[in-house]
Amino acid sequence: MSVPKLCIDDVTIGQKLGTIDKGVMTTSHIMRWSAAVENWHRIHYDHPFATGHDKLPNVLINGSWKQHVLVQLVKDSLGPDGWLWKIKFRYKKMDVAGDTIRGAAEVVAKETVDGLGFVTLRVALTDQNGAVSTAGYAIGVLPTRGGPPVPYPFVRKSEYDAIRLPADD
């Protein structure tokens, strides 16, 4: 059996578990996402429409794309032996072409239940000025040192019912 890269035993409250950087996000990056998911809403690629019709400062970075940045942040922070179980987030402000996106995950709680480690993370995306555009929490599952691997597919158990995402800040 291989040794897990990250165990719940390695994690401490207040630890910055991971960061992620995307950008500078250009209209081309936004258009690539819109094309990949076939979202043809013009606020994401049609500058005259976005700024003239919808009075936006520039074409808008898709909220749906930012969701994936948060998920990637947590997935990579937990490593290959962990599992992103839950995530919640709210949008605080829009991001537009020309913005840079930085994500960060910080440990706010941890516990061990039924042989598995559960780590609660505060997650946020900020722009190049440090303004938070998206914020929330996630719960990741990690093995304990010497304990069983995190099952895949992940299985809900009644023992986990008390493990809940924190209320919004």
Binding site: G63, Q67, W83, L84, W85, K86, I87, K88, F89, R90, Y91, G136, Y152, P153, F154, V155, R156, L165, D168
Partner: peptide, 10 residues
């Protein structure tokens, strides 16, 4: 959009 809460299994 008032926010999302997502659970992942597979």
């Amino acid at each position: 959009n008032g926010g999302n809460e997502i659970e992942f299994y597979r």
